[in-house]
């Protein structure tokens, strides 16, 4: 494993489409549920322990080499919102494109061949981590970080929130990101049936509302 490969994969500048997704923050900002650093932190913490944990488990499972079709079906079952399923598959395709150009190899080729319409993003993330020589914990860390990094960046853009305060939110969440990654990886080692399924009602409810907005800045 190379620690630098993890930095390349986790970098917000990695061209895999994440910059156009707010992780539900755009809807939460509009509803007034995210309005400052404190409410951003509560939003991110909740997202980390729900959608983040679930994504981290799937990513760790894929990095461990669990059956990809079972993982993708598990991701579908954990994503009741069709808008979020579509976003996850689209981001999966976008990550696949970047990953195959960055770390070409048979694992990613096989995944692309098996899922021509795209697999869920965390599944692609796990296979990408493997292709980059990274392990399941690394994949889980990436997923956990993405779960909160996206909303934090989006909130800076949407609210003009002080970027230092937004980054401080992420830093305060770091120990919990580590916990989530460890928990997700331990579960993935038990197999697909043991993967976390933590969910967040408001993320599911607002995702469909957001998808129907005529004017929005973020894709989800």
């Amino acid at each position: 494993m190379t620690r630098s490969a993890l930095l390349v994969l986790a970098d917000g500048r990695f061209p895999a489409g994440g910059h156009a997704h707010s992780g539900g923050a755009e809807a939460a900002v509009k509803a007034g549920r995210v309005r400052d650093a404190a409410s951003l932190e509560a939003f991110c913490r909740g997202r980390l322990h729900t959608a983040g944990l679930t994504a981290a488990g799937l990513a760790a499972g894929a990095a461990l080499g669990l059956d990809l079709h079972e993982l993708d079906a598990a991701a579908d079952a954990r994503t009741p919102s069709p808008a979020l399923r579509a976003a996850a598959r689209r981001l999966g395709r976008q990550l696949m494109r970047a990953a195959r150009a960055t770390w070409p190899g048979p694992g990613l080729d096989a995944l692309a061949a098996a899922f021509p319409r795209g697999a869920h993003q965390p599944v692609v993330l796990g296979v990408t981590a493997r292709a980059a020589g990274l392990g399941p914990e690394d994949a889980a860390h990436c997923a956990a970080y993405e779960a909160v990094g996206g909303p934090a960046t989006a909130t800076v853009r949407l609210l003009g929130l002080d970027p230092y305060r937004a980054t401080a939110v992420l830093a305060r969440l770091a120990p919990e990101m580590d916990e989530v990654a460890a928990r997700a990886t331990a579960a993935a080692r038990e197999g697909v049936d043991a993967l976390p399924a933590a969910s967040a009602p408001l993320l599911d409810i607002t995702a469909e509302q957001h998808a129907a907005w005529p004017v929005r800045l973020f894709a989800s």
Partner: peptide, 17 residues
């Protein structure tokens, strides 16, 4: 294509969408 409030990113830095 949604650009996450950064139109230049979507055409230059991360063109995946």
């Amino acid at each position: 294509v949604e650009t996450g409030a950064c139109p230049h990113t979507a055409i230059r830095d991360d063109i995946s969408a």
